[in-house]
Design a protein around this nucleic acid. Structure first.
Lengths: 201, 201
DNA sequence: GTAGCTATGTGACTTTAGTTACGGTATGCC
DNA sequence: GGCATACCGTAACTAAAGTCACATAGCTAC
């Protein structure tokens, strides 16, 4: 996966028309059924995108990393619809908020912009397909293990600061299930457990 | 859901540059890992888009209906990637095959084209999210019932010509499970069963 | 008709996951 | 220290889904 999809000249252009916003962890960038006001472009930090159920259950869809944007917001914006997802800040993030009107204008004036959007769509589409594969065909223990590895790769550390509950939420299952499976992984020497921490061995 | 997303003028333009192909039921329009040669636009009939697992299991993602296109192919084409999905003809279809080069050109020359693509993305994205919701949060019996209703609505008939095995494949589960659940639906007078046929009451 | 195929029905069992319930433990705060 | 709070461990149970085995039923071709 490439680190940055966005070119320098496009980035400069975007910075000139958008407004910068710093957001701490766990702040909510967007909620399900929100109307979309602006298109967020993540400059650094990361955003966690979740799908939620009526009765509060949720599941992790993907992360938005630096240089990426939330395509859902672009879709929603151009089609004037409500958000179907919830986006919360994972690592504290600097986000460039782009007014919709400007974003639409850019399609005409900056051909690279559309290229950027398409690439993002592609990535997100694939990630959604991966999620579907995972929940349709994989067992929870595999999914948990892969989630741990993904988190380790993303944060570039083997020490993950997470609770069992958080992992359970991201997988869309119960805390007890995660605790059980983590214990198994510990027994098979793949991880070590301590409070608020999972260490990959 | 609107019947047609595509405007007449755009359709005329597309017809002038694409080649028409008639395909019978069950012919394979695209397979996982195929390279994408052309962008298909469905004029009539319908296409079933599935995601498959390494070991043969599969799950229905969505249907492509008249006036729509397979956005995956557009994504794959613009980013020069392989298909991540399998597309097979459901109802016998007439399909307009659009060479990729022309499709890319259209972005510049026909602004409406890009609008069309974006609308499709939006629809497909939502459908994928619906699939995720379904497999993550719903039980198989609910999903089966909704699948039956969807099929009835789509084909505009209450008599569905399907086998239990086909339904099982679309749900990504086993035939026995579907048989059992269909029996339950029959007992609760929601459907009637006979060979190769499910009738919604 | 009947052989052979495909489709369906169903019981029994296993595996996986979700639920309930509660005890124990680390941590921070007063 | 002592208490409150969040976090973790685990047993016991239930529910859902997947698997296995096999019986039966309907259709087609000869």
């Amino acid at each position: 996966m490439q680190p940055l999809l966005i070119s320098d000249s496009l980035l400069v252009k975007l910075k000139s028309i958008g407004s910068l916003r710093k957001m701490p962890s766990d702040s909510i960038l967007m909620n399900e059924d929100d109307y979309i006001q602006a298109i967020p472009i993540v400059l650094n930090g990361s955003i966690k995108v979740m799908r939620t159920d009526e009765d509060g259950k949720e599941i992790l869809l993907y992360y938005i990393k630096p240089g990426e944007s939330c395509v859902m917001s672009f879709l929603g914006a151009t089609c004037n619809e409500r958000s179907k997802i919830k986006a919360i800040v994972d690592e504290p993030a600097e986000i460039l908020m782009l007014p919709i009107s400007k974003a639409v204008e850019l399609i005409r004036t900056f051909p690279e912009w559309i290229e950027f959007i398409f690439q993002l769509y592609n990535r997100r589409f694939e990630e959604l397909l991966d999620v579907i594969n995972a929940i349709a065909f994989q067992k929870v223990d595999e999914r948990l293990w892969e989630l741990l590895k993904k988190k380790a790769a993303m944060n570039n550390t083997k020490e993950l600061a997470v609770t069992h509950q958080q992992l359970a939420d991201e997988l869309g299952t119960a805390r007890e299930v995660v605790s059980r499976l983590l214990k198994q992984l510990e027994k098979s020497k793949k991880i070590a457990l301590s409070r608020n921490k999972v260490t990959i061995l």
